[in-house]
Structures are given as C-alpha cells and as structure tokens.
C-alpha cells in the first residue's frame, strides 16, 4: 500500500487537520506517514492544501507532485489538482460547493456532498470529516474508520474536543453514504 494524497480547499475548511488525522490514524496501524502543508505566501480566505503520504515502505519525498488521491473541498482546488492526479487515481470532490464536473475520464471520481452531510449531522464546519469518512469507504486499505475516530483524540485540539461527537457522527454518516 502506497498512497500519495493531496487534501485541498480554502483556509478554514480544515484540510490541514484532515491530513493530520489520516496520518495519526495510519500511524496506529504501523504505517509510514508524512504530512507537509503548502506554505506559499498564504492568506486568510485563500486556498490551502497539504500533501500526505501513507505507505508500507519508508517515505522518500513528503512533497506530492502527482497524487494518487485528491480530496478537493472547493472549486479552485479541483481545478488546480485534477490535472495533477495520476492516471487511475481517485478524485473525491465536495459536490456541496463544486457545481461543475471533473473533466478527465482516466480517473476514478467520487462526488460527496460534504457540507450537506456535515450540516445534517450537526455542523457544517465538519465537512472535512465527511470527506475523510467517504474516502475511508472508498479506500479501506488506507486506514480503518475505527483508527480515524480514535485519532480524533490527538488530532483535534483540546479546545475543540467538544466537537468530536459531531465529528464522529459525520465521519460515520459519510462512510456509509454513497451520495
């Protein structure tokens, strides 16, 4: 197992945290992981992304020029990262906010209404959890749902631990949903 993942969206959607969550969960399974945020001249409200590598083998570069999985939380992110996806890779996109379709026909595509699922379960802030929950269902070898839920205890700051009940509901709902 070796996946190179880009999680992208706008600042505040929790894409960096979603990447950390995957890493912390995969660590529990003894996998090699790396996480690196994009750190250009970023600003509030701009786009943000992180590169995550999860592998059975030691990781070379933490930077991911051609991901095998892209999680796109908003339109600009899908435009930016769909072309970089490896042939046969997975594009999981947030169809609550992205109202256009991916262009490529040589990749696997999953649309998830991340904001809608999150809002239905209690907080639209947890759209990142919906994306991760759906991703886990599509790529069960990556990391188990139980370990993702367990990793929330470390990934989420003390201040935000109170939101974990909703986070878990959203993760589970998106995990068992196909829309």
């Amino acid at each position: 197992m070796h996946e190179e993942i880009v999680v992208a969206g706008f600042g505040g959607q929790g894409v960096i945290m979603a990447g950390k969550l995957l890493c912390l969960a995969a660590m529990k399974e003894g996998k090699h992981v790396s996480h690196i945020p994009s750190y250009g001249a970023e600003m509030r409200g701009g786009t943000a992304n992180c590169s995550v590598v999860i592998s059975d083998d030691p990781i070379g570069s933490p930077v991911v020029p051609h991901p095998t999985i892209v999680v796109a939380m908003n339109g600009p992110s899908m435009r930016k990262f769909e072309p970089r996806l490896k042939k046969g890779g997975l594009l999981l996109y947030n169809s609550s906010l992205i109202d256009f379709k991916p262009e490529r026909d040589d990749i696997e595509v999953i649309a998830v209404k991340a904001n809608d699922i999150a809002e239905d379960e209690g907080s639209k802030m947890a759209a990142n959890m919906a994306a991760i929950g759906r991703l886990q269902a599509a790529k069960p070898d990556l990391v188990s749902l139980d370990n993702i839920i367990d990793a929330l205890k470390i990934a989420v700051s003390k201040r935000n631990q109170k939101h974990n009940e909703v986070n878990i509901k959203v993760l589970k709902k998106a995990n068992s949903s196909t829309t």
Binding site: S34, I36, P62
Partner: peptide
C-alpha cells in the same frame, strides 16, 4: 524547508 515543515512520526 521541507524537513522543517514536514510532520513524521
């Protein structure tokens, strides 16, 4: 910068 910015176990 890559080593400094990257997280690893």
């Amino acid at each position: 910068g890559f080593l400094g910015q990257m997280s690893e176990p």
